[in-house]
């Protein structure tokens, strides 16, 4: 009976969508960054899989269907860049400078820290794209030979930490310029951080959402050329 249910792709589809809906509801009710819908959905699904001893391969029959939509989701990032083209054109040099500096610093920091601590290369490769937007990060992790689920875990952690710590980092690094605040938040902590940027100001949020696409592209190019 159990196999009959879990071996259908419908199981993975249903459990994923239901958990995410629950996650969105909890997130909206509490309004706290730590109650991220993606994080809640993952914990719920993993709990179900472990509790009922369901293998990931069974879950992933449905999961893979949802995963297919990463393509359109990534492609549509250019929709938001294009819609904000006035803002992009206005600050293009600063956005390019900031996202390039941030992406390069991020990759160097991760590789240096990884070799310092002495973790294995698979884990290091999984961490390299952890600051960029999720669909791009998953793609980069796969091309680098990383484990994409580790990338998503590090990415969630970075995003939630970035969301919570953004006001503190603005203060201790004395970042007064609003464009700089937006670019830094988007580059360092992708879309989860961007939701905090939107709270700080609509202009900062818009810049942040542009920066997260740019840093994703730059990181992918660096990964393709040098790693």
């Amino acid at each position: 009976m159990k196999e009959l249910i879990t071996n259908s792709p419908l199981f993975g589809l249903a459990v994923t969508i239901l958990s995410y809906a629950l996650g969105m509801r909890i997130s909206r009710k509490t309004g706290k960054a730590i109650f991220n819908p993606l994080l809640i959905a993952e914990i719920l699904i993993i709990a179900v899989l472990l509790l009922f001893d369901i293998p990931f391969s069974a879950y992933n029959k449905g999961g893979a269907v949802i995963n297919m939509f990463l393509g359109p989701v990534t492609a549509l990032l250019s929709y938001s860049i294009y819609r904000e083209r006035k803002l992009v054109r206005q600050h293009i040099i600063s956005i390019l400078a900031g996202t390039a500096a941030g992406s390069i610093a991020s990759i160097i920091a991760i590789l240096l820290l990884s070799s310092l601590i002495g973790i294995d290369t698979v884990l290091a490769s999984s961490l390299v794209p952890k600051s960029v937007t999720t669909p791009i990060a998953i793609a980069i992790s796969e091309t680098l030979g990383g484990v994409r689920s580790l990338t998503v875990t590090a990415l969630l952690l970075t995003g939630v930490a970035g969301n919570i710590l953004a006001p503190l980092m603005i203060k201790i690094f004395r970042v007064k310029n609003r464009v700089a605040q937006g670019v830094a938040i988007g580059t360092a902590s992708h879309v989860v951080g961007t939701s905090k940027a939107l709270e700080l100001g609509e202009d900062i949020g818009a810049i942040s959402s542009i920066a997260l696409s740019f840093s994703g592209i730059i990181t992918a190019i660096i990964a393709a050329l040098f790693l």
Partner: peptide, 15 residues
């Protein structure tokens, strides 16, 4: 958007 990242993240049970 984040719904579509869920399966890639759940894969952590394998690791």
């Amino acid at each position: 958007m984040a719904l579509f990242f869920v399966p890639a993240g759940v894969e952590i049970v394998e690791n």
